[in-house]
Simulated assay, not measured.
Amino acid sequence: MKLIILLIFLISFIAESLIGKRFEPGYGVDETEGKNIARWGTVLILLFFIPGLFIFDIENNDVMKWMSISFFFTILGFQSLIEWKYLEGKKYLYSLSVMVISVITIFVSSLIYEQLTHTTFGEEMTELLSEDEQINEIKIVWFVMDNKEGYSSSSVSITDKDTISKLVEEPSEMELIKSNNVVPELDDGIIDIEINTDKSRYYITFTKGHANIGRHEYKIDKENKFLKILENEELDWKENNL
């Protein structure tokens, strides 16, 4: 999504450089008495938005979308106002058009991006398992990091059909975001899962905010429902010697 927004920014800048200056009156604000207002206004807008890149979670699609829309609306809206006040002709209408097109493009691109990258645990499990495939056993190894003792781990083997069904079905609405740049959070450890069916064997890895299902990486949006079930379910955990 960040690359898409950067591309939109570059296209807007190039369009302004190549096309915008051809509009009447054929010169820019920097050649009028409004040049200082335009420069200082632009600087203040940049100083307002740049810290947001470090304060807010720009990896979040919604945050990036609304920050970008706000930036284009503000910077191009300000430019249009200055052009309307200090330039003759209709140059300000061009800047307004670029602003509207940029905002709409970002919004639509964000919707398409969400459709392509957002999924659920249930949808991915449906892709992983065939319709007639039966799960016979789920093996779980939970690694936990201790600052003093290093890693410790516990494991459990689940064959009870009701428990298996609960582990697979209850987190089905858990929202996932496809990503190749996920940095796992290890606060609650690493959960390695082996699913044995009547046809094959599958592996899933969970951390608090990350999932690896099959060969795909996902960021967990909001709550890790699978982790919550494990924490609340009474399972026969056995400590392992590492």
Rank of each mutant, 00 (worst) to 15 (best):
75 I>A: 07
81 L>K: 11
80 S>R: 08
215 R>T: 12
77 G>H: 05
233 E>M: 13
120 T>V: 03
104 I>V: 14
200 S>I: 14
45 I>Y: 01
175 E>F: 04
70 S>K: 08
195 I>R: 01
11 I>C: 03
37 I>V: 15
100 V>P: 07
207 T>M: 06
24 E>A: 06
173 E>D: 14
121 F>W: 04
216 H>R: 13
188 D>E: 06
73 F>E: 03
195 I>T: 06
228 K>G: 06
224 N>W: 05
86 Y>V: 12
194 E>V: 12
109 S>Y: 00
161 K>W: 11
52 G>F: 06
149 E>T: 14
199 K>F: 10
128 L>H: 00
59 E>W: 04
88 E>V: 09
39 R>Y: 15
218 Y>E: 00
74 T>E: 04
7 L>N: 00
102 S>M: 05
107 F>H: 10
63 V>F: 02
188 D>N: 10
166 K>S: 14
146 D>H: 00
129 L>A: 12
39 R>L: 15
106 I>A: 02
25 P>R: 02
139 K>C: 10
207 T>E: 01
191 I>D: 04
17 S>L: 14
24 E>H: 09
206 F>R: 03
31 E>K: 08
107 F>L: 13
96 L>P: 02
3 L>W: 01
167 L>S: 00
230 L>S: 03
55 I>V: 12
172 S>I: 06
13 F>P: 06
208 K>L: 00
3 L>P: 04
147 N>D: 09
188 D>K: 08
161 K>Y: 14
70 S>T: 07
106 I>L: 00
108 V>K: 04
151 Y>S: 12
16 E>H: 10
18 L>H: 07
35 K>M: 09
83 E>W: 05
225 K>T: 15
51 P>A: 11
131 E>A: 13
40 W>I: 10
141 V>E: 01
153 S>L: 06
112 I>E: 03
56 F>M: 12
128 L>D: 02
207 T>L: 06
223 E>Q: 13
69 I>M: 10
30 D>K: 11
239 E>P: 05
28 G>C: 02
161 K>S: 13
146 D>L: 00
124 E>R: 02
95 S>V: 14
110 S>L: 00
111 L>Q: 15
10 L>Q: 10
224 N>D: 08
5 I>M: 03
176 L>S: 05
100 V>E: 08
180 N>L: 04
143 F>W: 03
133 E>H: 08
2 K>C: 05
92 Y>N: 10
175 E>G: 00
10 L>T: 07
176 L>K: 02
53 L>K: 10
165 S>F: 12
